[in-house]
Simulated scan of single mutants.
Amino acid sequence: MKQLLVFVLFSTLFCWLMFSPIYKHVLVIRQALLQQEADYMLEIGASGRFGYIDGAMVAQSRERLAGYGFNPVRLEYEVVSTSGEEATNASSPLRRGTGIRLRIAYPYENLLQIDRLIGLEPPSGEARIAGGGMKMSEYVARSD
């Protein structure tokens, strides 16, 4: 009986040691991809040409992230400005010096369930990994 118990405990620990780094690696890669996408969108949206991040840009971002295996429906985008103005309105770009803040969040999707084998509680179903940042708008209205 002791040998069976030792076998079960050892096999549980062995499974966790074998597979946990893989899931952690997937988690780190997902977070890095979210951060890279947020940086790219802020670079484009805050440029002198745009001054906003609209729905079309978000849709293109969803497509890019779907190419990496993300479920586009589960991606959450939050775009706000530091002045309180609407940061998603293409007809009213944010003027130079106004900050555009972007946050892209995605659920963990049971990636860390294997941690239960060693007694660690995985994140809740509402928990999300996220990437984001803020960049000052460089948009200057042209006077033709």
Results as ranks from 00 to 15, higher is better:
102 L>W: 12
57 M>C: 00
95 R>I: 12
97 G>E: 07
70 F>C: 09
131 G>H: 13
122 P>V: 00
89 N>I: 10
102 L>A: 07
108 Y>G: 06
122 P>W: 01
96 R>Y: 09
69 G>P: 07
79 V>T: 04
113 Q>K: 13
95 R>H: 11
51 G>A: 02
130 A>V: 00
86 E>P: 02
104 I>W: 08
84 G>D: 08
113 Q>E: 15
70 F>S: 06
78 E>F: 03
102 L>G: 05
72 P>W: 05
125 G>E: 13
74 R>S: 11
79 V>F: 02
125 G>C: 00
124 S>Y: 01
46 A>W: 04
121 E>W: 00
96 R>H: 09
94 L>K: 12
112 L>F: 10
54 D>I: 02
109 E>N: 12
67 G>F: 05
74 R>G: 00
60 Q>F: 01
115 D>R: 00
130 A>R: 11
130 A>I: 01
52 Y>E: 03
96 R>G: 02
121 E>S: 13
112 L>T: 06
93 P>I: 06
103 R>M: 13
99 G>L: 15
85 E>R: 15
100 I>F: 11
124 S>H: 08
104 I>L: 11
62 R>D: 04
92 S>L: 12
74 R>E: 13
126 E>N: 13
116 R>D: 00
45 G>R: 12
71 N>M: 09
119 G>R: 09
108 Y>R: 06
83 S>F: 08
58 V>C: 04
98 T>G: 08
72 P>V: 10
116 R>A: 08
128 R>D: 05
97 G>N: 10
78 E>R: 15
78 E>Q: 13
50 F>G: 01
86 E>D: 15
114 I>F: 10
85 E>Q: 14
96 R>K: 14
77 Y>M: 07
127 A>P: 01
75 L>W: 02
123 P>D: 03
122 P>F: 01
130 A>D: 01
67 G>P: 07
111 L>P: 06
52 Y>P: 03
60 Q>C: 01
88 T>D: 08
126 E>L: 10
115 D>T: 13
105 A>T: 14
112 L>Q: 08
74 R>H: 04
67 G>C: 07
89 N>Y: 10
56 A>P: 00
108 Y>M: 09
71 N>I: 11
60 Q>P: 00
126 E>Q: 14
58 V>A: 06
55 G>L: 05
115 D>A: 15
122 P>L: 04
99 G>I: 05
97 G>H: 11
46 A>P: 08
66 A>M: 05
121 E>Q: 14
103 R>N: 12
131 G>V: 14
104 I>Y: 11
86 E>V: 15
73 V>T: 13
64 R>I: 02
118 I>Y: 00
84 G>T: 12
120 L>D: 02
43 E>C: 01
72 P>I: 07
119 G>I: 06
103 R>D: 08
101 R>H: 06
47 S>T: 02
69 G>S: 02
72 P>C: 02
103 R>V: 15
114 I>P: 09
102 L>S: 05
129 I>D: 03
117 L>S: 06
99 G>A: 14
78 E>M: 11
111 L>W: 08
118 I>R: 01
59 A>F: 01
63 E>T: 12
112 L>R: 05
59 A>M: 03
57 M>I: 00
42 L>H: 10
99 G>P: 07
116 R>T: 13
61 S>W: 04
127 A>D: 14
65 L>Q: 05
121 E>T: 15
61 S>E: 04
96 R>T: 15
